[in-house]
Amino acid sequence: MLSRTSILRVVSKLLIPPIGLYALYVQFHGDFGPGGGFQAGVIFATVFILYALIFGVTNARLVAPSWLTRAMLASGVLLYAGVGVASMLMGGDFLDYSQLATDPIAGQHLGITLIEFGVGITVAGAMITIFLIFDGRIRVDDDDEDG
């Protein structure tokens, strides 16, 4: 029903790229203004859910198949923990980013950017996965009622 409404389609087509871009801005500009991995992940998931609601979940599943969202979910946590282990290997404590580069401030900056990226990936992956699972469940129920 929704996918036949042309106004919604056109408006969402106009809106989706800026929202996605904004998510990236929030992700990487979190050091200077409000923002960071948690918010960026949620906004990114919102882009995806908007796309799924307007253009149908079948199309959205082609964009982000479930193996991809699950991989996102796991790789974010791995990236975060990996940064911690890396800083340990380079001679510091767990999650002590000062060791990541020769200059402590540069190291901190690199570390924060990396772990915020990990947080963003995990949050986006989690939200999209949960949304897809709920949708998959609805679909199964509908099939049962039909058949």
């Binding site: 960071g36 948690f38 992940g41 949620v42 949050v123 989690a126 949960i130």
Partner: peptide, 10 residues
């Protein structure tokens, strides 16, 4: 609270 909100929705 920032982290609590996102954990809350999960």
């Amino acid at each position: 609270i920032l982290t609590a909100i996102v954990v809350g929705v999960a």
